[in-house]
Design a binder for these strands. Structure first.
Lengths: 133, 133
DNA sequence: TTACAAATGCAACAATGCTGCAAACATAAA
DNA sequence: TTTATGTTTGCAGCATTGTTGCATTTGTAA
């Protein structure tokens, strides 16, 4: 689906910035950082505009944010309609690539008495097929 | 074990700041934020000193850092001698308490061909026994 | 007690992210 | 196509989090 349609579907104004961001994130198969998006996107947008766009797209569940170890922030397209409460991502210790694993199942370890589980964030760290040689 | 002994064991200079930090973190059963530590610790230390102390103690595996959703950073004592590659923590959506679950086992979902798993970070979000009413 | 290495406090700086406001833009209606 | 309106953008400024260099202070072993 094209960025324009996605925005229209969610009742968002079709600005060039938002379209570029969606296109950029959707066309790569892995999660991308703000810097990578800035480089790929045509046109120079203000830092604030990017943050506000990310925020809006996240709120509408079009993209989602993945944070690894506090400092590395990346964004990825949310699989259409998927509202999973289990978020699994792979992170490569070497090239720092981040990939979504939307189909992965997690078994939640038993919680203490009285605790309730709502959602989980799992990051699997290791080496991707390119770096694992 | 006392903070002094822990520091000595790891060949670290026994400064009052480090001792206070270890005591504070060890005496509470859950992870604590920089602010909470600042309040509990006796004596006024510079922000830089805290950061450097955290860094040192983390390097020696005396404490570890847990990050929830990019902004919430907490520290907890590392169970003695435990060098687990599976880190499981519980986070309460309401009171924001963070608790270590050192005994929890995770089943790692199968990775694509050529990928290698090294360690995992799992955060289980929900409601703790106090907030789940 | 002393000498030396290590830790601390301070100032400055960098990165990330947010807010208010005026200007520019997208869109629906005329 | 033009216009009116609400939304988005760019800019300036600010807050938070974390780092670095350097002079001063502290801890430790001799």
């Amino acid at each position: 689906m094209k960025a324009k349609e996605i925005l229209h579907q969610h009742n968002l104004v079709r600005t060039s910035c938002r379209q570029s961001i969606i296109d950029t994130i959707a066309n790569l198969g892995f999660a991308v950082s703000e810097d990578e998006i800035k480089q790929k996107v045509e046109g120079n947008y203000d830092r604030t505009t990017f943050y506000r766009s990310f925020k809006t797209l996240i709120e509408k569940n079009i993209i989602h944010k993945i944070v690894v170890d506090n400092q590395l922030v990346k964004y990825a397209i949310t699989e259409s309609g998927r509202v999973s409460q289990n978020h699994v991502h792979f992170y490569c210790n070497l090239c720092e690539v981040v990939e979504c694993m939307p189909d992965a199942q997690i078994n939640i370890p038993p919680l203490p008495n009285g605790y309730r589980h709502v959602e989980t964030e799992l990051i699997i760290k290791g080496f991707c097929h390119k770096c694992n040689l």
